[in-house]
Design a protein around this nucleic acid. Structure first.
Lengths: 207, 207
DNA sequence: GTCTATAATTTGATAGAC
DNA sequence: GTCTATCAAATTATAGAC
């Protein structure tokens, strides 16, 4: 166990390469040969470690979902006020979507393709599925205190997810549609880091 | 030319079937056999009419984009006030996304896969690419009149698109994540038809 | 134009040497 | 564990009869 930390073992290399290719090309568009090339190893190794393309995909997908859920649960269960939590959620989602723009499309595509299987997978993860019960309670408390309007917590969640994730995942189309350069688009996204949480809060706060 | 209007010609049948399958399964996930079955014709016919799978996809994609752009241009160039136009845009996008939830994923996936080719395709359409110049002017006018805050029109567009499209395209994941039944989710979307435009307008209107 | 049968190609998967 | 060579299956594409 004195292996250099720089040199990943083969399994890790495969998972990293497969993750990238699957996210970019999708489950069907990704080819085993391309994954092998990206990992710098032979195609036969993929089968040696993961048996089949399906199994490799499942592993990659599960790992990605798990990683994200852990992060999310950290926020949703933190001891914060509603407004603080909205800020944190917006920051986390925006950062995730910006750094890894293919990830949301990847997840959504898979959940659309096979909703039942998707659900089963999610529920069998070690990391618990994100729980919004605490968030919902915070919303209800603020309503009772008269601080915010009588809104459904689900709508707030939908708004946060939409505003944070969509622009990043649709970047090429957005850039083109709005006629923005790469730089202009990136700075537009940067602006949103400040504005989205305020927009959400402004829309529910009682004046 | 006394053919019954009910019986579509083969080419139209193919395009309809291919559109459905491509949107649902994606460019790579869709199989020619499945398209042929959906169209109720033989696989060889697909090649007779469209030469190759690639060409069939391009035709379907272009046609879909064109149809949507025409609708959008109708709104963007209409003689309306800014607030009216925001309401119309939200309605059009929400309806589109709800009735055809696979369409946005389809377009975004393709534009991510090949941004340059996507742009070339769009620009060569008969229907002009949607122009936001008039929308931008309306925003600037309202800013000058002191009716709304000094916001960038691009941010408004991003917000409209995000809030309307994302929840519908991510329906299975949303349902699961929020623990909603089909019925509950649909009524949540229905609520948004009333609330989204108001949310957008509320976020920019000067009080 | 439409079909059946078949060719050609791509791609996932395995066998077997090292 | 890793590679080369090869197989097997799936899928696109075409040939040719009607």
């Amino acid at each position: 166990m004195v292996k250099s930390a720089v040199i990943q073992d083969t399994e890790a290399k495969i998972l990293a390469a497969a993750g990238e290719v699957f996210r970019e090309k999708g489950r069907d568009g990704a080819k085993m040969q391309e994954i092998a090339d990206a990992a710098g190893i032979n195609k036969a190794m993929l089968h040696y470690y993961f048996r089949s393309k399906d199994q490799l995909f499942e592993t990659v997908f599960t790992q990605a979902a798990q990683h994200f859920f852990e992060k999310l649960n950290g926020i949703l269960n933190a001891d914060k006020t509603l407004f603080e939590m909205i800020h944190l959620l917006c920051g986390a989602y925006l950062t995730m979507a910006t750094e890894n723009p293919h990830f949301p499309l990847f997840i959504i595509g898979e959940s659309n393709r096979n909703a039942e299987g998707f659900m089963k997978k999610i529920f069998s993860l070690k990391a618990k599925k994100p729980e919004f019960t605490r968030f919902k309670k915070l919303v209800q408390d603020e309503i009772n205190l008269g601080h915010i309007n009588n809104v459904k917590p689900e709508q707030i969640i939908m708004n946060i997810l939409s505003l944070c994730i969509y622009p990043a995942m649709a970047k090429p189309m957005m850039k083109m549609g709005l006629g923005l350069t790469e730089k202009e688009f990136d700075s537009a996204i940067e602006e949103r880091k400040q504005s989205i949480a305020d927009l959400i809060i402004g829309s529910i706060r009682k004046n």
